[in-house]
Design a protein around this nucleic acid. Structure first.
Lengths: 149, 149
DNA sequence: AAATTAAAAGACAAATTACTCTTAAATATT
DNA sequence: AATATTTAAGAGTAATTTGTCTTTTAATTT
């Protein structure tokens, strides 16, 4: 897989929040049920994103999690970095530490391009803009396709 | 990571064999030492490739493993499929089962392109041709860069 | 103040991936 | 035939990732 499960869960949760009206907190219970992700596991993952300032949380009744302003303007790339770390965008495709333009592995040259392609895919649109597009195109966010933007 | 460790080990071993003269068996002991991969682990991985007909093995003194004709003409893509399976090239970037051009996830459209970019990177050159290029360019195949083509 | 709601934190369990070790089978050499 | 070499096969261990459960902390409501 390109991204870890944790990472994918984090992205879907971020998109979920982007789809909702700004500034409102949504409970992890609600999100975990709608997105069909284990409640406790999702909690853990979103804690990483709040720690990174991409989300904000509030305890108590009507509390929950929302995108911070930073998080709304951020891209999926930022979320991936926060969860999976930068490895995918920095490391050699064959995992060779010394690989680089001087002493490249056989994949190096194409991998540099492919890697940017992945990076661009994740960087080109902010969460808020994806959400706008989602409202038009009704992007899938769940296995059953029942999520409504 | 894009590819599993097993897969990367398999690719490096395949490139190792491609670099050596055709038709000669190379022992797993030799390969595991030169490539700095655990002997038993490498054994397991190459068994998958021999089972797939991409490599051939021979037991006994001066036995070992070599690329089959099919394996030499094959690409890294074929090796990846044999070890990691086709998931990377077929599945949704968010792991959503129903995702497709009808009901796409937010990443679907760009992912289709990016995915082909990965596929092309692995498909564009046969093992034998990479080996030819390797002899010119002395590609890195080990962490220490000591492999000689 | 007491009870309720909801996230935070931490310990624990299961599943997967990565790696090791031992024994068996095949081939070659002596 | 006996011994040595080398892959095959299988069981077992370690590490990482994924997922669960319990307790604590913060906030709200009554």
């Amino acid at each position: 897989m390109l991204l870890s499960k944790s990472c994918v869960y984090g992205l879907r949760a971020a998109l979920y929040l982007a789809a909702k009206k700004n500034g409102e907190y949504h409970s992890l219970r609600e999100m975990s049920e709608e997105l069909e992700i284990s409640f406790h596991f999702l909690t853990k993952i979103l804690q990483q994103l709040t720690a990174d300032g991409l989300m904000e949380s509030y305890k108590g009744p009507n509390g929950g999690v929302r995108l911070s302003r930073k998080g709304g303007n951020a891209t999926l790339f930022d979320m991936v970095i926060a969860i999976d770390g930068p490895g995918l965008f920095t490391q050699c495709a064959l995992g060779l530490p010394g690989c680089g333009s001087q002493e490249p592995c056989p994949l190096h040259e194409s991998w540099v391009d492919t890697r940017s392609s992945i990076e661009n895919m994740l960087k080109k649109t902010s969460l808020t803009k994806i959400a706008e597009e989602g409202k038009e195109k009704h992007f899938r966010l769940t296995a059953d396709g029942q999520f409504s933007w």
